[in-house]
Every structure is written in C-alpha cells, then in structure tokens.
Design a protein around this nucleic acid. Sequence first.
DNA 1: ACATTGACGTTATATTGTATCAATCTTGTT
DNA 2: AACAAGATTGATACAATATAACGTCAATGT
Lengths: 150, 150
Amino acid sequence: MDTEKAIDKAEHNCLEHGVKLTPKRKSVLEILLESKHPQSAYEIADLYQQKLAEKIPAMSVYRMLEFLIEQGLVHKLASTNKFLACSHITCTHSHKTPQFLICDNCQTVNEIGIDSSLIAALEQSISDNHFKLSSPQLELHGLCEACQTN
Amino acid sequence: MDTEKAIDKAEHNCLEHGVKLTPKRKSVLEILLESKHPQSAYEIADLYQQKLAEKIPAMSVYRMLEFLIEQGLVHKLASTNKFLACSHITCTHSHKTPQFLICDNCQTVNEIGIDSSLIAALEQSISDNHFKLSSPQLELHGLCEACQTN
DNA sequence: ACATTGACGTTATATTGTATCAATCTTGTT
DNA sequence: AACAAGATTGATACAATATAACGTCAATGT
C-alpha cells in the first residue's frame, strides 16, 4: 500500500469536506498506514514519539483518531480496541460496510469486500427484525492463510 | 423469558459437561437473565451486592463470566464490553453463530437467528479469502423498532 | 482589531481487565 | 475420619483503555 498516495487522497478528502488534516492528524494517519497491525491509542502515542521525537498525550491521540474515524480514514476494531487505517482510502468506490478478518494468531487484519448481494441479504434479514442498522461493521476472528499452516 | 427454566437448563447442561454451576455462578447468571440490558462486569458486581447483600470482587465476577461464556450460557459483546445471558439457553437446537442487534439508543439487544443459508454464504465468502473462522459473532449496531419511531 | 471557533495541552479520573498469591472448599482415596 | 489434589474464590495490586473538564493558543471570518 502506497502511504504517500493515501495521504494525498486523505488531504483531498478533507479539503472537500471543509475540515483540516493538521500535521499531527496526518502523522497519526501515516503511522497507521505504515503499521502492519492495528494499534492501540497508547501504542500510537509511542510510535508517534519514536517517529517524530516528540511526546504526544494519549488524550490527543484519541481526539485525532476520532477525527480520522469521522472522515472514514481510520476504523476502530471494537473487539480488540485497536485502530487501523482504512485500506480503501485510495479506492474510488464509495465505502460501505467495512468487514474485517482478524487473525487471532498474527494480528494481521484483512479488510475484505464481501459480496454486496450478501450484505444486502443480511440487511434484509435485519430489517425483517424491524431493526435499523446504523453503521454495520463486521469483525470476524479466526486464522489467516499463513497461520493456518503452522 | 423464564429465568427459572433457564437456570434449570443451565444446571442440567453443566452436569452433562462435568462442570459445576456453583451458587455464585448461578447468581451471576440469574442477574443476567433478569437484566433487560447487557451489563458490565462491574455493574454485575453491584447488582450482586444489591441482590445478595454480599460484596463480590470484580475479579471473581470476571472469572464467573469466563466460566459461563465457556459453557455457552453467556455472551460478551466485544463492541460494548458488556455481558448478557444467551437468549437461547432453553432452546433445544444447537447454538451457532450468535448474532446481535444492539440498539444504540435504549441498549436492548436482540439475539437473532439469521438465515443459516446466509451465514453459510458469508462463511463461503470468508473461506474464499483463505481465512478460517474461529467463532464468528456478529454485532450489529442501530436502532430497535421502538426507538426508530421516537 | 475583535470575537468565535477549533485544535491541542494538561491533569485528573473513570472504566475495563489481568496477574499473582493466599485461603477455602470439594472430592476421591485410603 | 484423614489426607492429598484440584478447583473455586478472595484479596491485592496493577495494567490498559477511555473520558471529563478546563486552559491555552492559533486560525478564521467579520
């Protein structure tokens, strides 16, 4: 994944929405783009300090993550309390239900695109229960290809 | 939902599996069965104290929850860090993928049974990504029927 | 220039969860 | 009954995650 391209896209995106991708916000996004695995807010604070030789309060990291999540640039994994850059930042297609395959062994996460007809069927099944989905996000735990063979 | 019947079933269940549903574990399960909403571990500790006029350490609550989850009697909602009794304790059919519709307004949770062919398709889509699911659990946030109209 | 707003810092505190070791209770066996 | 072994629970400490409240400063528009 091309970090630079993603950052460009993110900046463009923020401009369009009339919000600011400040240097610190950008750094946090960069850190997540360069991370192989999802990171906790405190881990991000550590990485920030390593990378920029400057301390950052966890409180600030949470605020920046909140911003990035609002802009759809970052996702939070509720099941692990960690954060990761949206892997579709550079895509043109509109974002829908994010779906994550989380490897419980090596922690890598695959943000997949489940067949949209499947999602539609799922949503139908849900609306049959008279329920109105807000932002569906599927987090599925298991083992990735590499970890299955070990 | 009939608490007593569920407790009976749970006891039977534990007997079959050669594990013990101790009085405290039973109390924790009762508390969840009688709760309208999912509860955090610390909330359960408070309810326990109210109900039994006896303090219980949070650590113990966590252990009892762990036990109850292992027995499939309780679920943990990863997205909210709360616990709830499985609403299918008294059912005879085998338990599969638990799926929760969580109302973000009133906190009620509906444990639904999504069409099994749908789940099968979802799992197919996942195995197409060379991923091996461990215990799929879907947590879907939104608004329940009652809260949509308000 | 001035007021307003947003971004960020600072501190404190709440909430959720785990590690560790001691005490107690069960159970099976002798 | 007496004992050993294991499971259960208590007690204490602490780690990890998250939010609240308030202050400062800079950017922005009027």
